[in-house]
């Protein structure tokens, strides 16, 4: 038997040599540091007292660190409102988006109806429209429908915007679910729709979670659309609200950083929570086992 080093790095090798394992760990640790460090710097700024924003010090916990910025943010700004609004809008757009995408993806996955290819391509095409091109017309539509300044208007715009991508993810995943499972249910006398809800949906948790995660992030992070659609301070989502921390010339950097940290936490938590599905649910046109 040859030694571990001759064996493929691509197989799930139990026999990697210790040296190789050390190198792999070293590379991964370096990559992790690079991916996390900028965020740690933001955390660091948020802890700094406001008179020492700029510093050549690379220490992450600054001298004189305090939570003052967080206190001011939570108790003196509308921050909790912004967070709540973002949460409501994002959650609603996930639910609405999944309602629309789950069945549509099933149609794409199980039937070879005429226009299927064109339909899938059309969905991909919608992703090619440059940002900003649809901004003004969508805004006009929303105003005509009297939906500006409402959660409803925002949620509809975001959910429909994320439907094409959700359909792709869900279709890819449905493809990996053997048809025999539904057929068994059909034999038992269930209608196709019931088979779908009873058999396919429960098996698709990973893909639903990932599609939901994507819609959530789209809505959570959007500034462009929110900026024109929201004209009441009590409706602001956080990206719009954050602008208040920046005056024409002055910026409350410390509070801005603190707000960034607090806003990043829900997103990070969501990623952490869904990380167990993140790999298995992302089957873009995936292969069948």
């Amino acid at each position: 038997m040859r030694t571990g080093s001759r064996r493929s790095v691509f197989r799930r090798a139990r026999g990697d040599s210790p040296a190789k394992r050390a190198v792999i760990h070293a590379v991964l640790i370096l990559a992790c540091v690079m991916s996390v460090y900028p965020f740690l710097r933001v955390v660091s700024v948020s802890l700094r007292p406001s008179n020492q924003l700029l510093s050549t010090d690379l220490a992450l916990i600054p001298p004189g660190a305090s939570l003052e910025n967080y206190r001011a943010l939570i108790f003196e700004r509308d921050f909790t409102i912004w967070l709540w609004n973002s949460l409501v809008v994002s959650a609603a757009s996930v639910l609405v988006g999944l309602m629309l995408a789950a069945t549509a993806a099933y149609a794409f996955s199980r039937w070879k109806f005429p226009g299927r290819r064109q339909g899938l391509l059309f969905l991909l095409t919608t992703q090619m429209i440059p940002a900003g091109m649809l901004l003004l017309p969508i805004y006009i539509m929303v105003v005509r429908l009297k939906l500006f300044n409402t959660y409803t208007g925002m949620a509809i715009a975001y959910s429909v915007g994320s439907v094409p991508f959700s359909i792709w993810i869900l279709k890819g995943y449905y493809d990996t679910i053997p048809r025999e499972l539904e057929e068994a249910a059909l034999v038992d006398g269930a209608s196709p729709l019931v088979a779908f809800y009873r058999v396919v949906i429960p098996l698709s948790t990973p893909a639903l979670a990932i599609a939901g995660l994507f819609s959530f992030m789209t809505a959570w992070n959007d500034y462009m659309m929110a900026r024109v659609m929201l004209q009441k301070p009590n409706m602001f989502t956080w990206p719009v609200g954050f602008q208040k921390l920046m005056d024409q010339f002055q910026t409350a950097w410390g509070q801005f950083a603190a707000a960034s940290v607090l806003v990043a936490i829900p997103a990070l938590a969501l990623f952490l929570y869904s990380s167990k599905w993140l790999v298995s649910g992302m089957t873009l046109g995936g292969v069948k086992e």
Binding site: I140, R227, V228, Q243
Partner: peptide
């Protein structure tokens, strides 16, 4: 109702809003 936008955003939003009739 007092709404705050950045200087540029205020200009752009006012243009869009006036165009859409609000």
């Amino acid at each position: 109702e007092v709404v705050n936008y950045g200087v540029e955003d205020l200009r752009q939003n006012f243009q869009s809003a006036a165009f859409a009739g609000t």
